[in-house]
Amino acid sequence: MNGKQLRTTLLGFVGTFSILGLLLYFVGVDGFIGELRRADNGTVALVVLVTLGWLSAWGFSLQTVLDVLGVDVSLPQSFFILNGAMFSNNITPFGQAGGEPVTALLISKVADTEYERGLAAIASVDSLNFIPSISLALVGAAFYATQSSLGRRLRIATAALVALSVLVPSVAYVGWRKRDSIQRRITGVVAPIIKYLTRILPVSSSLNREEIRSRIGHFVDSIERVATNRRGITLALTASTAGWAFQMVALWLAFAAIGKSVPLSIMLFVVPVGAIAGITPLPGGAGGIEAVLVALLSSLPGTAIGVEAALAAVIIYRGAVYWVPVVIGGGVLSVVGVDTVQQGS
């Protein structure tokens, strides 16, 4: 991580702590601490265990996609690779957009494959994760609407979900149909940039236009290979859906830990909506996700969730889904980094 990236990351964490500080200020520290003190340690441990289930399910999804691409990795390897990916996402701004290049490099190192194939694999997994998240959220919103009227915040969130469910697939479809022309345009833009960078940076080799076109072509071919494998997509989508279900159960258990009973149907809706806040320019979306979750949960009609209880449960839940992959993934990247240095020496 160079100086500019470090400054950007540090600024992101300053933003995260600022948002969390504002949440505490508006909620009230005493009420928040009081709710946390009521937490049952055994149930909190279950939240962590379910978090590992989520990571295992998405690790299987990654293994499935890599298998489609002809990359042989074991389930434990894909689990650790996924945690490395989550670590990168959680410490870089803009979440997945910031961490995926590092993840692709990790895949290429661990699986001994091309960088483009690793990038295609993690991009495919991220795309597949979007489908069940939106689907589950819309099902949850529809079910909850039959039980109680939706408040203003929930109506806005539901409208945003409906818009995303139409916009994202439409953009993906158009992009897929025009992938050849997009590939040529990307090559035309990237080639001059790389040529310029190789002049001013101390690198030993450079890529010519044909090599760049070839690498982008390999990336597109890998995406196409995944998209046309029905068995692989079915398995990956099933694993992705299971992963989302584990996350929803984790938040439900976080409420149970502080003695609050919340319908599981609510989790179907709020967890994917909260995940959308991960696109904010904050490391892993931290701060933004918590704010969105607390705002939604505390505004649910027909429930007795106060802002203090909502924040306490969200902190328990986010403490697991944020820090468990950070700890595991940080260890993975450290080991891979040490091995890489030793191999190069």
Rank of each mutant, 00 (worst) to 15 (best):
R179W: 00
R179E: 13
D180L: 08
S181E: 13
S181N: 15
I182A: 13
I182P: 05
I182G: 07
I182K: 07
I182M: 14
Q183V: 11
Q183H: 14
Q183C: 08
Q183Y: 09
R184L: 13
R184N: 10
R184Q: 12
R184P: 03
R184K: 08
R184C: 08
R185H: 15
R185F: 14
I186G: 14
I186H: 08
T187D: 08
T187C: 12
T187E: 15
T187Y: 07
G188H: 05
G188E: 12
G188I: 00
V189A: 12
V189Q: 11
V189K: 13
V189T: 09
A191E: 09
A191N: 15
P192L: 03
P192G: 07
P192A: 01
I193P: 08
I193S: 04
I193A: 12
I194A: 12
K195C: 05
K195W: 02
Y196R: 14
Y196E: 15
Y196W: 14
L197H: 03
T198H: 12
T198R: 10
T198K: 02
R199C: 07
R199P: 02
R199A: 10
R199L: 06
R199Y: 08
I200Q: 02
I200D: 04
I200S: 07
L201T: 02
L201D: 01
L201N: 00
P202E: 00
P202R: 00
V203A: 03
V203Y: 01
V203G: 01
S204Y: 08
S204K: 11
S204N: 13
S204R: 13
S204V: 01
S205F: 05
S205D: 13
S206L: 04
L207A: 11
L207V: 09
L207M: 13
L207T: 02
N208L: 05
N208R: 01
N208M: 02
N208W: 00
R209F: 08
R209Y: 06
R209T: 11
R209P: 05
R209K: 06
E210M: 08
E210H: 10
E211M: 05
E211F: 07
E211L: 00
E211R: 07
I212N: 04
I212A: 04
I212R: 04
R213T: 14
S214G: 13
S214D: 14
S214H: 06
R215D: 02
R215N: 08
I216L: 14
I216F: 09
I216G: 09
I216Y: 05
G217R: 01
H218L: 12
H218I: 04
F219C: 03
F219T: 01
F219S: 00
F219A: 07
V220K: 07
V220C: 09
V220N: 01
D221K: 10
D221G: 04
D221I: 04
